[in-house]
Design a protein around this nucleic acid. Structure first.
Lengths: 227, 227
DNA sequence: CGTAGCCTTGACATGACTCAACTATGGTGG
DNA sequence: CCACCATAGTTGAGTCATGTCAAGGCTACG
């Protein structure tokens, strides 16, 4: 329902430009990779599409999501520069992936990766660990979804803070609607919660997308979530 | 809070008996495996313990879970006969694992598996697929947690039905409290929802733990969840 | 037949959702 | 540079689903 409201612009169903430089580029796990650029809100792959690649974010941000029968959208994860995504796949993807803003990616072939892993014990281990990290993220996301709105929002902000800058200010690449669909809340509840956190002095909101955290003022029950 | 109420009996911190037969037993992925037996509610491994093994359920049932700061317990997954678990780990486990009822397991060494996978492309692929399946389960669990109580309970029953018998009756190995902690609901809400489903003729409850599904009467909005 | 654990039911409280109006922001063209 | 528009975000009032607290009923096992 509310996800429906998100009008999506600039959907370009394939890479705005694929930069195939002559010189080889190396991506995740030291594999030969193809650099790609996507405009904002572009589809990278769709649910149920054959899963032939693995991706690493160079700049920008990516969201993976599923649309439920009732029309709601659940965002499974956000991927930021350095993150690798596309694991969530046996033969085909189980979620769609879109860019949140203009994004540069590196793309590697899954089949090539598997072949190389089967000759390289260290690489097999790295792959295992990367998937375990992905599982850990999902597990933490699960825990989030059973807490209160305030806990969800604070945990989200802390996670973003930890993953981007080391200082306490974050520049969110995604809209309130994205945040809401990630946290399993409505956009109104996210907005109200942010306002309330600001009034309590836990955060400052110099602009809509910029958020400054006062770590010392965090509600104690979530402070422990800090990595 | 309510999770606290679950009084746990018969915690035996290690395998009641490890059957080390002379003849070798083969477990998941064709690896040499150690058979083990656990009593009901026994700990298999704890959160943050070193993750040295992978397990396959032979008979019985297993739950993985985390305890949150506020005392609530979130069950991440149930594993039934045939299922493999223990993937959710880089160097150490990110959740605890306990038996739901008396359970027989096969245990294989992760390190040995990695070594063999790095010589066997097919095995690498199988491992990848197994972890992808695990990710898929988590993704589906995520979707569950943002739906209504009725949708959660029905989806849970359908999932259990699909994974156990092919007919429409299921014998739940776990308590209402387990179900509640898996679905992110209270035990009261689970109970009320089951009663309501029974009154609507969607299910029958011949005994507390036995549930019969009338697939034809399922609420349409979840019927699509059928695999 | 008694008891303990598990489950159900009821009455009430409350946090998040819905619907609706309003405000701020950022980009575009005059 | 300003006015305008579309988009994004905020705020308010009222409703509803689920949680909380408390009592009571099964069931199974000794």
């Amino acid at each position: 329902m509310y996800a429906q409201a998100t009008s999506i612009h600039e959907i370009s169903h394939h890479p705005s430009s694929v930069l195939c430089r002559q010189s080889r580029t190396y991506g995740p796990f030291g594999m030969v990779a193809t650099p790609m650029r996507f405009a904002r809100n572009s589809e990278i792959y769709g649910e149920d599409e054959a899963a032939e690649h693995l991706y690493q974010v160079v700049s920008g941000a990516v969201r993976t999501y599923k649309i439920m029968e009732d029309g709601r959208r659940q965002i499974g994860a956000f991927y930021l520069p350095g993150d690798i995504f596309g694991f969530e796949a046996g033969d085909s993807h189980i979620a769609s992936a879109e860019t949140v803003c203009e994004t540069h990616l590196l793309m590697v072939k899954r089949s090539a990766l598997i072949v190389r892993a089967s000759q390289d014990c260290e690489l097999t281990r790295q792959l295992w660990d990367a998937m375990a990290l992905e599982l850990r993220r999902f597990q933490e996301h699960l825990m989030l979804l059973i807490s209160s709105a305030e806990q969800r929002v604070v945990a989200f902000l802390l996670d973003m803070s930890r993953r981007t800058t080391k200082n306490a200010a974050i520049e969110l690449p995604m809209s309130r609607q994205d945040v809401a669909d990630y946290l399993g809340l409505t956009i109104e509840t996210v907005s109200r919660t942010l306002t309330q956190l600001e009034q309590n002095g836990v955060i400052a909101l110099p602009t809509l997308r910029r958020i400054e955290l006062r770590n010392d003022k965090l509600p104690s029950h979530v402070a422990q979530n800090l990595g």
